[in-house]
Design a protein around this nucleic acid. Sequence first.
DNA 1: GCCAACGTTGGC
DNA 2: GCCAACGTTGGC
Length: 160
Amino acid sequence: MKIWLMKSEPDVFSFEDLKTAKNKTTLWEGVRNYQARNFMRDEMKKGDIVLFYHSNCAEPGIVGLAEIASGEAYPDPSQFDPKSNYHDPKASRDNPRWVVVDVRYKKSLKHPVSLKEIKAHPKLSEMKVAQRGMRLSVQPVEEVHYKILQEEFWTGSSSA
DNA sequence: GCCAACGTTGGC
DNA sequence: GCCAACGTTGGC
């Protein structure tokens, strides 16, 4: 079981949007970075934990927990859609370039863990997301960091 | 809105 | 294959 951090701009698609989505599930469309794609295509497994991260907003940080709900990655339909912002003219149905996975809402957090808190924490500051210039929108999270998040932020009254 | 850091593109 | 130019990300 792996743990992932997935970024989304709340103006585009927020954790609240995921919670209210049909079946509380969405396909994670629009990833247009090869490294991120390869994680989704090669390494994600159904049931993996997802830390849902809000980026490019007033309070960037981890706002909720989700999980991978699809068995395998499959072609991102938006790449074939000329009207989509995510359209990729170089992709074809015979030779798709981009994939999606399904992400399902799991749990909200009463107290999101802000990027500020992550950076201020002696261990969490090692996380990729805290590193300077790190733009990768899908990134693996080390188990030790997930444990710290659980034990120091999400136990007892701090989890919803 | 600014801008540093990054990834991609394309000319050569 | 190099690398300058460009577009994007995302914190601040």
